[in-house]
């Protein structure tokens, strides 16, 4: 048996709660950083809305999103939702080309966050995720991640409201269909982790795609501060998934039993040198109609 590496000791539940508190302090610091871009974004968008839409900007945005959508149509989640044809139709409409794109993007982002919150909420009602049978690390992760998605949704909706747009309080409709389809199969940790991973990966890819398509610097900054967080959720879920699929969920501890992990476990959380966008959601998918 390989010994535990020097300096790595397991943590009990009280220590885990302390870590969560420390994490909350760090988060408060990061919130201060996000407030300024949100305020600037609101001011700039108010100025923009006083002017006529810029045809060049609209055209450039549409081209950029089209490129992402071409990739997105190959995404398995969209196929599962059976929504490809409807979205192709939506893309061809004048409404898409002339819409206030930053607001639409924010509404779609909020809808993704709303769905994530709802999904983690359902997961936490399951005994093996949020109940007495649950692994404490998994339960804490699900609880914290749901809270972070709530904060993301609030950040997007705050910006939407101040821009004069309508807050998006509903989930992304295409992804909701995916989640509803998956619900009957959520009978063990494996399918729950797989569903959460699919949502996190999709959210991260959407924001990566949006960052390069957004025309507003501050909307871009807000989105950029969230995309990496979703990618981190996905990385941890990939690692957890490997352990669950190996029928050894009890190895999900903080820290994990690194000494006894297979060598390949060291890289399972981050498979890509460059984060992909082939599962990015279309920008208007969650926009308020």
């Amino acid at each position: 048996m390989t010994p535990q590496p020097k300096g790595l000791a397991e943590i009990d539940e009280h220590q885990l709660l302390d870590l969560v508190e420390e994490s909350a302090d760090l988060h408060a610091d990061s919130m201060r950083g996000i407030a300024e871009p949100l305020e600037e974004m609101v001011e700039l968008e108010h100025e923009r809305r006083l002017e006529q839409p810029d045809p060049d900007e609209t055209s450039a945005f549409t081209r950029a999103r089209d490129a992402q959508l071409t990739k997105a149509f190959g995404g398995k989640m969209l196929v599962a939702a059976g929504a490809g044809a409807a979205l192709v139709g939506l893309l061809s409409t004048d409404a898409f080309a002339s819409a206030p794109t930053n607001v639409q993007i924010l509404q779609t982002a909020a809808s993704i966050e709303n769905l994530a919150v709802a999904t983690y909420g359902v997961a936490l009602t399951l005994p093996f995720i949020g109940g007495s049978e649950a692994n404490p690390v998994v339960k804490t992760f699900a609880t914290m991640t749901m809270s972070q998605h709530q904060q993301h949704g609030q950040a997007f909706n705050t910006a939407i409201a101040r821009l004069g747009g309508t807050k998006q309080t509903n989930p992304d409709p295409a992804l909701l269909a995916v989640v509803n389809q998956a619900k009957p199969g959520l009978t063990s940790a494996g399918p729950v982790v797989a569903l959460a991973l699919e949502l996190e990966q999709g959210a991260a890819e959407t924001y990566v795609a949006n960052v390069s398509a957004l025309t507003d610097n501050n909307a871009q900054a807000v989105t950029a501060s969230i995309m990496g967080v979703e990618a981190q959720h996905a990385a941890i879920l990939r690692a957890v998934q490997a352990l669950v699929e190996g029928n050894d969920a009890s190895a999900i501890t903080l820290p994990p039993p690194v000494a006894s992990l297979p060598a390949a476990a060291g890289s399972v959380g981050f498979p890509d040198s460059f984060f992909p966008t082939n599962q990015a959601r279309p920008a208007t998918e969650g926009a308020v109609k």
Binding site: A9, M144, H152, V229, L254, P255, V258
Partner: peptide, 12 residues
């Protein structure tokens, strides 16, 4: 995670 710290400490 390996260091035993919460792996996603910041919402932003």
């Amino acid at each position: 995670f390996v260091l035993g710290q919460y792996p996603v400490p910041n919402a932003f």
